[in-house]
Computed example of a mutant assay.
Amino acid sequence: MSVPVTARWVVLDIEGTMTATSQVHVVLYDYARPRLGPWIDEHPDDPVVREAVAQVKAEAGLDAAAGTAEVVSVLHSWMDADRKATPLKTLQGLIWSEGYARGELTTECFPDVVPALRRWRERGAQLAVFSSGSVAAQVASFSHTTEGDLRELFSGHFDTVNAGPKKERPSYEAITEHLEAEPGAVVFLSDVPAELDAAAAAGWRTVGLARPGEPHAEADFGAHPVVSRFDEVELEVIA
């Protein structure tokens, strides 16, 4: 069943919405896991790495003098729990960026995604991404996909650092302000009902993605309209 939507901005979640959850939990996590320790040890003077390590120690209650092995143990436990911890996302993003640059990683979107994104852009819509993955990881992932380099399709990238937690209303209000848009001119596509609730509370339009085989396929989306594919969204672009 098609869902009509009127908007100027289309903001997109990634995991479970644009790509399979396994793209992150299997492909990307497995790539980052053995590289976290070596990356920390090989970049001791990188301020971004130092700050991320300090944040891990602070959040985990580790001593400031704790070694890399203790930090990595915490990071691995967070990965096992799928915790959206900012320092973890930062370090993963750095590692993934290098992996994409080396051609060792490639992002595979659902078949219906890229044609829809291009169609919406051709109609004049602006596209942005809001993901728990770091902005650096987002940009890197779209630079190397099975459909080529998709970076030019997106006009904005948001994560838990520059916007805030994905299940909280103020994050969407912050994005609205950054986009310089009216809340009602923005639609958010996500597979997580709680994220859609937060976006709706900020005045956004919402569409839930219930993709077969994904973790939230049978979730209760409440009043949010639901589709299983992007081509079921009938987008009318606000001039």
Rank of each mutant, 00 (worst) to 15 (best):
V114F: 03
A128G: 11
R123K: 13
A199E: 09
T90P: 15
E104L: 07
C109D: 01
E173P: 12
A20F: 10
A239I: 03
H216R: 14
A174Q: 14
R50H: 05
G208L: 09
E122C: 04
A60D: 11
I14H: 02
R123I: 03
H144C: 13
H144I: 03
D197Y: 09
L12I: 01
T21W: 08
S73E: 14
V161M: 11
G16M: 04
K84D: 14
V56G: 08
H224G: 11
L196D: 15
D191L: 07
V237K: 04
D149N: 06
V27A: 09
D80Y: 03
L117P: 15
E42A: 07
E173F: 07
R83V: 09
V233Y: 08
F158Q: 11
N162C: 12
M79R: 00
A85C: 13
V26F: 13
L12E: 13
K89W: 13
P165F: 01
V114S: 08
F158R: 08
S171H: 01
A200Y: 12
A116F: 13
Y172P: 00
A202T: 04
G213N: 02
A219T: 07
L196S: 11
L117I: 03
S97E: 14
V114P: 14
F142E: 02
L62S: 09
D191M: 10
E147A: 14
Y31G: 07
R33S: 01
G148F: 00
S155Y: 06
A194E: 15
I40L: 00
L153P: 15
G16P: 05
E152D: 15
L189S: 11
